[in-house]
């Protein structure tokens, strides 16, 4: 699996640390499971998010799923273009299909996330 610098949650979000913000997205496994993604609900810039709590929702034809924050903090940026272009999840889920950027309130939370190898193991167990 590429993206060696990424970390993951058990609920299939990925997180990437860049400077003082953490970018969040959905793993390829999550995207594959959801199928055709048709709707996305994201927070606004300035909202507070809490590690392990839902900050948004994603809907496919089949089902709706909550999206959970990998770390707590303030929403610094939102991918406004994404709701209109859900195909990006299929083509570039680790890049252009990022969801939000969080300014973490507790940088120590980063270490509690799974690394790539641990996440791969987690997916195998699903």
């Amino acid at each position: 699996m590429a993206n060696e610098d990424l970390k993951y949650t058990e609920s299939h979000e990925w997180a990437r640390q860049e400077g003082d913000v953490v970018t969040v997205g959905l793993s390829d496994y999550a995207v594959e499971q959801l199928g055709d993604i048709v709707f996305l609900e994201l927070p606004s810039v300035g909202d507070q998010v809490t590690k392990g709590a839902p900050f948004g929702a994603i809907e496919s034809v089949k089902a709706a799923a909550d999206i959970y924050a990998p770390v707590s903090g303030e929403v610094a940026e939102v991918n406004e273009a994404l709701p209109d272009e859900p195909e990006l999840f299929k083509t570039d889920c680790f890049g252009q299909a990022w969801l939000i950027k969080i300014k973490p309130s507790d940088p120590a939370q980063w270490d509690s996330l799974m690394d790539t190898a641990a996440y791969a193991e987690h997916v195998r167990g699903q």
Binding site: G35, D36, V38, S60, V61, K62
Partner: peptide, 12 residues
């Protein structure tokens, strides 16, 4: 089968 590789939208 819930869907084939084409996906629900394309199948519909």
């Amino acid at each position: 089968p819930i869907q084939y590789p084409a996906g629900i939208v394309q199948e519909h």
